[in-house]
Structure formats: structure tokens, C-alpha cells
Computed example of a mutant assay.
Amino acid sequence: MTVTEPTPDTAIRPFTVEIPQVDVDDLKRRIRNTRFPEKETVDDTSQGVRLEVMQALATYWLEQHDWRNVEARLNALPQFVTRIDGVDIHFIHVLSKHEGALPMIVTHGWPGSIIEQLKIIGPLTDPTAYGADASDAFDLVIPSLPGHGFSGKPDKPGWDPIRIARAWAELMPRLGYDRYVAQGGDWGNAVTEQLALLRPPGLIGIHTNMPATVPDSIQAALDAHEEPPADLTAEERGAWDQLAFFYAHGLGYAQEMAGRPQTLYALADSPVGLAAWMLDHDAASYDLIARVFLGGSEGLSRDDILDNVDLYWFTNTAVSSARLYWESKLAFFAPKGVQLPTGVSVFPDEIYAAPKSWATEAYPNLIHFNRLDRGTHFAAWEQPELFSEEVRTTFRSLR
């Protein structure tokens, strides 16, 4: 790898996470002084995040969770900042020890962060240590979206997924890469697909775990609250049912952030309020997280979840990250006409499990499609082994 000669605008600067102890102490004080509302009046989640879950979360957060553990994990990784289009972009950059490693940029979503990808760094950069072949190794670039985590916060509008994709198209050659692939889910998929549409020199393929495949006719019928078409296959009908449920019961957070992100002052002031907002993303992920805090054993741990909330809290990015919903004018689940080689991994408890028939239409150069038997919206975080193997399989033919 080579690095272009640094200038004040293109310099790549080492980065270390150093949260002052006074901020850690302030977080604990705010958790301790949380004013909880009364219990919900129903015995299900129809009114939102349940009181018993948030009280259990707050107790663990206050008494057992330690931010310094994840801070040490982050600082054990090579981290950098570089300025692109007037905004500082933070990223993790891990090189494989294996010759011929394929460079890949991996983009997180909301309410995710670079924390989501920590578990896949080892399997993808050092596959032989995880039972895979050295020929499947990757060099990883894992950036924080603008307004998220340790990246800068844009002070002017315009930072939508298209502009972020342009920044990624500048970042990769700045790191010396002239041939690479890209991966993303959630907003990471939106950015990755826009990067594929830009067709920057060097980008040879993409992988997504949250594909945008919903046909226009299906979306129109969902928007009109019509009955599902009679000719849907069982797989397509399953996707229809998931989408109909999400549009009816799961869009509140997105509508508020898309319409009035600056109104969310409470998220910057109350850590428990921020945690509740982040938990209430989609039904399957919330159910998993609730089970974790009520004593269950799942793909995510209580520390995993609070590491991520801490990152948003200490960087004060609840509102700046929400603005991405306000900025974007893309139809989230609509096909975008991506022509590059594309791999699609369908995890069953994603917001919707894309049918192969829709994916084939959405991605005419579909080089990999697989339906997994477990996994939610946070696939890399919750099922890192399955996720890593999906990425390896997708890009094997492009090496």
C-alpha cells in the first residue's frame, strides 16, 4: 500500500480515543438520576420499549458496564482521520498479513457505528485464524459516517448518501487502493449502492446485507394499503408481510428524524432516553436486545449494546446522526439500477427478507445470493461468523 504525499487537505492523521474521566463520571450521574415514566399499560411492545427492559439496562449500565474496555479495543486498532470535502472522516484501517488481500470499505448504518464491525475484523483480515483460507483475506477500511462517531459533524446541509459515497470514492485511492470492493447494510447499503452507481475507478463489486429490491408495483400497493397481489410466491408474500408490518408499526423513529431531527434535544441530554430511542429500531432486533437485558443469551451481549450507545453519547452525535434521515431523498428499499457485480445475503429477521426474484431484478449482475437461517438487522455484529463467510463467498470470484 502507498499513501499519497500528504498536504493540509489530504493528510492522514493517526487517531486515539480518549474520553475524559469527567465525561464518564457525568454519564454515570445522569443514569443514576434518570426519571423513569410509569409502566406501559399493555403487556406487549405496542406502546414501545418496555419499562422493565430500560430499568434493567440502566442498572447494568450503571453498575457493571465499563466504557474503558471498548475504548481499549478501539485503540488497539489502527485508527485515522482525514479531511474530505471539508469534513474530518474517521476510519479504522486494518491490513491483512496475507499477501494479495482484497481491500474492502465497510459502511455502518443507524443506530449502528464502527462498533458493529469490530467482530468481523479478525475473521476477514486473518481468515486462517478462523478456519478459512488465506486467499480470502481482506484489508479493511471501516469509516464512521459524517455526523456519526468520531467523524466530523457537517455544519452545512448536503451530506446525503450520494455525497458520502463521493467521499468514500476519494478515501480509497487516498489510501493507495486502485482495486477494491465495498460492503454495507442499512445506511451503509445506501452509501454502498450510490458508490456503485458512481463507478469510481477501482471499485469492482459490492455486497449488501440489506438490499434495496422492492419493485415499484409492490411499493405502490403497500403505500396504498392494498391487499397483497394474488400471484406472490411464498417468499415474496413473506417479504410483503414484513414490509407491511414495518410501515404500520416501525417507522416512527425514521419519520421523526427525517422530518424534525433538531427537535431531538432529549437524546443529547438523557443517556437512558438515547438508549431507548436506539433500541426501538425494528421489532426483531428490539426483541433480541430485550431478551439480553432480561437475562437471555444471544448473539449480542449487554456490553455490546451499551458500547454502541456509549459511542453515540460520548461523541454527542444523537442529533447529528439523525440528520442523515433529513438529508436523504432516496427511496430506501427501491432498486437503484446497480450494474456492478453484487452479492446479497438475506438474514431472516432483517426489516424485510428480500426474495431472490426481487434481488435478481434489482441487481442484474448478481454474483451471490443466500438466505441465512438466523440473524437480524445487525448481521455483522450479531452473526459475525456467518457474515464473514458470506462476504468471502461473494468476492471470491472477483479476486
Rank of each mutant, 00 (worst) to 15 (best):
T4I: 14
E5A: 15
P8Y: 11
D9A: 11
D25H: 09
L27C: 12
L27Q: 10
F36Y: 12
P37T: 04
T41A: 11
V42L: 05
D44T: 03
D44E: 09
T45K: 03
S46N: 03
Q47D: 07
W67K: 05
E71D: 01
L77P: 01
Q79H: 03
R83L: 10
G86N: 01
V87D: 00
L102T: 04
V106T: 09
G109C: 05
W110L: 09
P111E: 05
G112A: 09
G112K: 00
L118M: 13
G122Y: 06
P123G: 05
T128I: 11
Y130T: 14
A134C: 11
V141F: 09
P146K: 06
S151Y: 04
D155C: 10
G158F: 02
W159G: 01
E170S: 14
M172R: 07
M172P: 06
G176M: 07
Q183W: 09
G185W: 09
E193W: 04
P201V: 07
Q219W: 04
A224Y: 03
E226S: 15
P229N: 04
T233G: 12
R237G: 10
F246P: 10
A254F: 12
Q255D: 15
Q262A: 15
T263M: 14
T263R: 13
L264W: 04
S270H: 12
L274M: 08
L279Y: 07
R302Q: 11
R302W: 04
D307A: 13
S320Y: 02
K329W: 11
F333T: 07
A334Q: 08
A334Y: 03
K336G: 06
Y352K: 02
P364W: 09
R371I: 13
T376D: 07
A379E: 08
A380R: 03
E390T: 15
E390N: 15
E390W: 06
R392T: 08
R399E: 12
R399N: 15
